[in-house]
Amino acid sequence: MADIKPRIKVPKTAKKGEVVEIKTLVSHVMESGQRKDAEGKTIPRKIINRFTCEFNGKPVCEMTLHPAISANPFISFFAKVEESGTFTFTWYDDDGSVYKAESKIDVTA
């Protein structure tokens, strides 16, 4: 799926214990399964149904998405960082595809 390109905004550095804002965007049609094509046939549903964020392997948050989420899902949230490390972001598609992205952050005392 060459057209699926996650984009992430995470600060590069933070202070220990700081709550940082994370913004994510992924290009995806989020076909709702409620639309009909020109011949009147229902266009099958194909959405990203789940998103997760982990930090150094530990879960930070997770989202279940339904067809009411807009195309090119935008998800932003917060994370409290106590140490330097890597955020891992994962998007799960109805068709079984999994899209991943990573972001490093340096945490100083």
Partner: peptide, 15 residues
């Protein structure tokens, strides 16, 4: 949207 204590802040945005 499921949070954990690591979220630090119980807030999220989407469209």
């Amino acid at each position: 949207f499921e949070f954990t204590p690591m979220s630090g802040r119980a807030e999220f945005s989407t469209r």
